[in-house]
Amino acid sequence: MSRISVRGFAVASATAVTAVGAVVGVASGNEGVSVDDTEATAADATAADATIADIPAGAQAQVQTASLTQQADEQSTQADAASLKSAQESARKAAAETAQNKKDAADEAKAKKDAKKREKAQVASRSATRDASDFVSKGSYSVAEVQGMARQMMASDQFQCFSNIVDHESTWNYKATNASSGAYGLVQALPGSKMASAGADWQTNPATQIKWGLNYMNDRYGSPCGAWSFWQANSWY
């Protein structure tokens, strides 16, 4: 109810009450009640009712304003919190993506570097001055002779790695046979018949075995030193 409607109602009510009182007074023979008194009473009632009506309306407006302000503040706070959370999540995702990209780039760079290193080693190893066919076949070979063949068939910086593997696998015995697995020769090929790809005399010619072993190490590990690194970590290659 608005201020105007309340005040109108108060005026109407006071007027009605005053009119009834006047009639009752006349009917009762109360001639002491005058028209002026009646009008004054009505005016006082109207003023009082108007004042009473004004106070609640003002208080109500203040309460409503305060409530709206509080709601607006709460909504603003919630919006700020949501924005902060969204910004933090976006920053976290961006940081994670950046870190992953750096890791991928580093891994790719390392892989390229390793590939170039293996390629260089392969080229050096395969540029050996002598091949298995360059050696004259004999009925038997000493350890020194077999090692001499190996030195001439690979790059000098790869020989020691090759030698380390052969020392562990066969102690430079080109006829060494593993009784349990059947592995054979200097590099213990399994089965030994694999070495036939390097020459039909794989069972008796250490140069053929060296050629096969060198090709195997280059193809699988990049070089004899690559094979030796693997052997050290796993005790096989």
Rank of each mutant, 00 (worst) to 15 (best):
S181G: 03
Q158H: 07
Q64F: 04
K194E: 15
A124P: 08
A87W: 04
Q75M: 08
Q209W: 09
A115K: 14
N205V: 06
A66F: 03
I55M: 09
A72F: 06
A189K: 03
R92T: 14
A72M: 07
P206D: 07
A115Y: 11
S142Q: 06
A144D: 15
S127A: 15
D37A: 14
V63M: 11
F135S: 04
F230V: 12
R118L: 09
Q70R: 12
S34C: 10
Q78N: 10
A227V: 10
G185N: 04
T171C: 01
G213C: 10
D157E: 15
T204R: 10
T208F: 00
G58R: 15
A109P: 08
N164A: 10
A45W: 00
A19Y: 05
Y221D: 09
A61T: 11
Q70V: 08
L190C: 03
T171W: 03
N205M: 06
K117I: 09
Y237A: 00
V20T: 10
A72Q: 14
Q122T: 11
G29D: 09
A200I: 04
G29R: 06
H168K: 12
Y216W: 13
T46E: 00
W212C: 05
F159E: 02
T38W: 07
G182F: 01
T177C: 01
Q232F: 00
S193M: 06
A61F: 06
A99T: 12
T38F: 05
G21K: 03
Q75W: 01
W228C: 03
A109G: 09
S83T: 13
N173Q: 05
T69K: 10
K175S: 07
